[in-house]
C-alpha cells in the first residue's frame, strides 16, 4: 500500500468550535472534558450546552441518550480525541442505533492536552473516522483544512446521521476560560432551557 503523506495541521481548535457553533441553531450540545468544554464556553455560553468536567469516555453516549429522547432536535457532541478513545465501543453502539439527529465531532489534536501533552493514538496511526465508518456511521470524515470544514458545515448540522467528523487541530495554546462547573446547576439549566416547567416535575 502506498504511503500517503498526511496534510499539515493548521486549524486552531477554538476557531473550529466557533465556526461550528455559529450555525448551531437550536441544537443541543454535549462537550467533553476538557478543552472542548472550555472552547465551547469561550465561543459563548449557552443554556443548551452540557459541559462535561468528568465522565471521560461518556460524551458520545450522553449524546445518544439525548438524541433518542429528542429526535426532532440536532444533537452535537464535540469532544477530544483522548475522550473519544476512552469510549470507542460507543461508536459501535451508536452505529447500531442509527440516530439520524446525532453528530459526533472530535477536535483531534493527537495529544492529551490536559495532562502534559502526551501523544495520543490518533497521532500514531489510529484513524477514528475509519473506525466510525467501519462501525457503520452514515457519514464520516477526517478534516484538515478550513475549506474542508466549510464544505462539511451543512453536513454537521443537517445531514442524516449518525455523523462522525475528526477535525485535526493544532496543539497551540489558547487563553484559559472556564465555564460553570457545578454539575447539578449545568443539568438544571440545560433541562429548563429544553423542557421548560416540565424540567422540575
Amino acid at each position: 500500500m502506498a504511503v500517503t503523506k498526511k496534510p499539515k495541521i493548521t486549524l486552531e481548535r477554538r476557531d473550529v468550535m466557533t465556526t461550528i457553533l455559529r450555525e448551531r441553531g437550536d441544537a443541543l450540545l454535549v462537550t467533553g472534558l476538557g478543552s472542548s468544554t472550555y472552547d465551547a464556553y469561550a465561543t459563548g455560553d449557552h443554556h443548551l450546552n452540557f459541559y462535561l468536567w468528568g465522565a471521560m469516555g461518556g460524551a458520545a453516549m450522553i449524546g445518544l441518550g439525548l438524541a433518542l429522547a429528542q429526535p426532532k432536535r440536532r444533537v452535537l457532541v464535540i469532544t477530544g480525541d483522548g475522550e473519544m478513545l476512552m469510549g470507542l465501543g460507543s461508536l459501535a453502539t451508536i452505529a447500531v442505533e442509527k440516530p439520524k439527529n446525532l453528530a459526533i465531532i472530535v477536535l483531534d489534536n493527537q495529544h492529551y492536552g490536559e495532562t502534559g501533552m502526551q501523544q495520543a493514538h490518533t497521532g500514531r496511526g489510529v484513524d477514528l473516522a475509519g473506525i466510525a465508518k467501519a462501525a457503520g456511521f452514515a457519514a464520516t470524515g477526517t478534516l484538515y483544512t478550513a475549506q474542508q470544514l466549510k464544505t462539511w458545515l451543512p453536513k454537521i448540522h443537517k445531514a442524516a446521521g449518525p455523523l462522525f467528523a475528526s477535525i485535526k487541530v493544532t496543539t497551540n495554546p489558547v487563553p484559559m476560560v472556564l465555564p460553570l462547573r457545578d454539575g447539578t446547576a449545568i443539568k438544571h439549566r440545560f433541562r429548563e432551557a429544553l423542557l421548560g416547567a416540565k424540567a422540575f416535575e
Binding site: F50, M61, G65, L68, A69, R191, A199
Partner: peptide, 12 residues
C-alpha cells in the same frame, strides 16, 4: 450510565 444521563437531560 452515560446514555441514561443523556436520556434524562432530554426528558426521558
Amino acid at each position: 450510565i452515560a446514555m441514561l444521563a443523556g436520556a434524562w437531560l432530554g426528558g426521558e
